[in-house]
Write a protein that binds this DNA or RNA. Structure first.
Length: 224
DNA sequence: TGCCAGGCCGGGT
DNA sequence: ACCCGGCATGGC
């Protein structure tokens, strides 16, 4: 499969932008909330994350000092609505511990680190994978790191722009090598891909009464 | 009712 | 280098 041109990715963006307009992402107030939300939303509906963040807010725990000092059991109870809460408690604690050890709990200092190096540092924290790292960099740090997620891969694949086997870094590189390193553009492009994915790109397309429906397949319908 | 949600890790082959 | 099970709540 030939990779799409820069022009194609631009046209794709323009079509999404015309259809949906500004998405106002990330749906969180502060960089601290973005980071916490990025971890909590792993494989989880944002609706559930909102409850967890509201609990943290109410407990005054949207704060790196408080998060550091909060016993894991109490943190787990606060973020319970987000699901996989034991795992996420470990991951939040791992990040907080790292943030204090590496940057003295100071986000400003953290984001002063040059992009490629900071991305590697974040990836070294247990529980922060590529998408979470990129979301933190882009939406909390305003650094031009393109965020790829399940929707991105699915939408691009269904429209014939990437191979089904394309992995995270391939897709990320595709955008970053085709587009200017522009933070508002990266921000909006990812948000638009999520929006169109939610509305038009189901994970497993189904066809009525298909005897093979339980098997993975690309699509029984034309692309949206 | 089962499937899904803005992943990631660790163990197995 | 892949592949897979586990994690867990809430909505449709």
């Amino acid at each position: 499969m030939s990779t799409p041109t820069a022009q194609t990715l631009r046209t794709f963006y323009d079509a999404l932008s015309a259809a949906y307009g500004p998405q106002h992402w990330w749906p969180a107030q502060t960089p601290t909330e973005v980071i916490i939300g990025a971890i909590l939303t792993q494989n989880t509906a944002w609706r559930n994350v909102e409850r967890a963040i509201a609990n943290l807010q109410e407990a005054g725990a949207l704060d790196w000092t408080r998060l550091r000092d909060l016993p894991p059991e109490q943190l787990a109870e606060l973020i319970r609505p987000a699901g996989t809460y034991q795992v996420k408690t470990r991951r939040l604690k791992a990040f907080v511990t790292w943030l204090w050890e590496r940057y003295d709990g100071d986000l400003q200092r953290m984001f002063a680190t040059p992009l490629p190096a900071l991305r590697e540092e974040l990836l070294s924290v247990s529980g922060i994978g590529r998408e979470t790292a990129d979301a933190i960099l882009l939406y909390a740090g305003q650094l031009p790191s393109f965020v790829v997620d399940a929707y991105t891969a699915r939408v691009l694949y269904r429209h014939g722009l990437i191979d089904e086997s394309a992995d995270y870094d391939e897709i990320k590189d595709l955008f970053e090598s085709s587009l200017p390193a522009d933070v508002p553009l990266f921000n909006e492009y990812h948000a638009l891909l999520v929006q169109v994915g939610k509305l038009h790109c189901r994970p497993r397309p189904r066809c009525a009464d298909c005897p093979l429906d339980s098997f993975p397949h690309a699509s029984c319908e034309p692309n949206d």
